[in-house]
Design a binder for these strands. Structure first.
Length: 385
DNA sequence: CGTTTTTGACCTGCGC
DNA sequence: GCGCAGGTCAAAAACG
């Protein structure tokens, strides 16, 4: 870590301004032994080579740092060196102080990070407990009304995955395990929420996971929001009912990564960009990508926890609301349209707009099975990032 | 020259 | 079976 330009005395002096005579700085003394200093271009590649030269070639003085004015008092070498020593000592003390201050700051930040991290884990534990309680309440309810006709209005979840889906969705948003383990923040903790996961038969879970997508709605003028990953566009289509084309991207951060995303402007407000993610990265994510990935996968995990925990695949809206509340700062919309349930995270609203619409959606909004989107809407007050 | 984007063709699933 | 719409492929073009 350099503190400023220094002179490499092992190399020949560099004449920076190419002046015919080396006298750019006429100093206080006009005498024969006045010192001259080459003009220094601090922004050039040679900025670290500053030469101070005595016209009589008696001795060269090395200028450390940017104190170019020091050559003014070169008439008396002893005084000058004492002043220099004082200055250096002062500088050193300042730097040491600064260092100490930064160390303290660093410690404080570490503590803060640990605190936030602990809070996060505590919240997730709380969520797990709540979900477990809900689950128990649900199963008790079901026992009580085992002969009651429970409508399956929200999700048609079952192991009816077709072969093409198997092909394209080898992994899903919900499968939060990643190779690099960078998703552990949410995945490990979520997977430790044993209640819903253990009840669900693996087959049903897998079939569901392949189908769920996470859609992020954000206001952006750019054609694509930056999520930290590298994407390659592989197609573009005009979607029905939207004048803006839909673009298809796949992740190129690792060969064979199954993650795809669709980007399209929202038909109601074209300043809003809707990005739909599908699949799980099979490679470590850069830090800036982890936020988005963990958000989407965490939300999706919660969907799975809340939805497939019932034996018949029926999703309890209240359960879902509770599931999403702790982790989402924005509005979360669950679209029940087949064939893919889609979770929409609406980042276009200011945080802390809390409003929960319980179950207008318990009425049946699915028409003809597909392409009729009547989302079940939850508005939550929790934090996403 | 390798990588990315563009774009028309093709495939698949679903409703009628 | 046909048509429609969404999704993907792949050759050509563009780009760095």
């Amino acid at each position: 870590m350099g503190l400023g330009p220094t002179l490499d005395t092992s190399e020949p002096l560099v004449l920076l301004n190419q002046a015919p005579r080396w006298n750019p700085f006429a100093m206080a003394s006009d005498g024969p032994s006045r010192k001259v200093l080459a003009e220094m271009d601090l922004f050039s590649n040679h900025a670290n080579k500053v030469a101070v030269k005595n016209e009589n070639d008696d001795h060269d003085i090395i200028n450390m740092g940017l104190n170019l004015d020091r050559s003014i008092s070169m008439g008396d070498h002893e005084i000058s060196s004492t002043v220099d020593e004082n200055r250096t000592t002062n500088k050193l003390a300042k730097i040491q102080n600064e260092l100490q201050r930064m160390n303290l700051e660093n410690l404080k930040l570490k503590e803060r990070y640990l605190q936030v991290s602990n809070n996060y884990k505590a919240l997730q534990m709380q969520l797990g407990t709540i979900m477990q309680q809900q689950e128990q309440a649900l199963s008790i309810q079901k026992q009580d009304h085992s002969d009651a006709n429970v409508p399956r209005q929200l999700m048609e979840i079952g192991p009816n995955t077709t072969s093409s889906e198997e092909k394209t969705l080898s992994a899903s948003v919900l499968n939060t395990k990643t190779v690099g383990g960078e998703d552990t923040l949410d995945s490990d903790v979520w997977m430790s929420n044993k209640a819903p996961k253990l009840i669900v038969p693996e087959q049903t879970n897998e079939a569901t996971m392949r189908k769920v997508r996470v859609s992020v709605r954000a206001r952006s003028e750019a054609s694509m929001i930056s999520d930290g990953c590298q994407w390659r566009k592989y197609g573009q289509k005009m979607a029905k009912g939207n004048p803006c084309p839909r673009a298809y991207y796949r992740c190129t951060m690792a060969a064979g990564c199954p993650v795809r995303k669709q980007v399209q402007r929202w038909v109601d407000d074209q300043t809003i960009l809707v990005t739909t993610y599908e699949g799980t990265h099979t490679h470590p994510l850069p830090p800036e990508a982890v936020a988005m990935a963990s958000t989407t996968s965490a939300t999706a995990s919660m969907l799975v926890s809340g939805s497939v925990s019932s034996a018949d695949g029926f999703m309890n809206p209240n359960l879902l609301a509770q599931a999403i509340r702790p982790s989402s700062s924005s509005m979360a919309t669950i679209s029940a349209s087949a064939p893919f349930p889609t979770i929409t995270l609406d980042l276009t609203h200011p945080p802390n707009t809390s409003q929960f619409i319980p179950s207008a959606a318990t009425s049946n909004h699915i028409h003809n099975g597909r392409k009729r989107e009547q989302p079940y809407t939850l508005e939550t007050e929790s934090k996403l990032f």
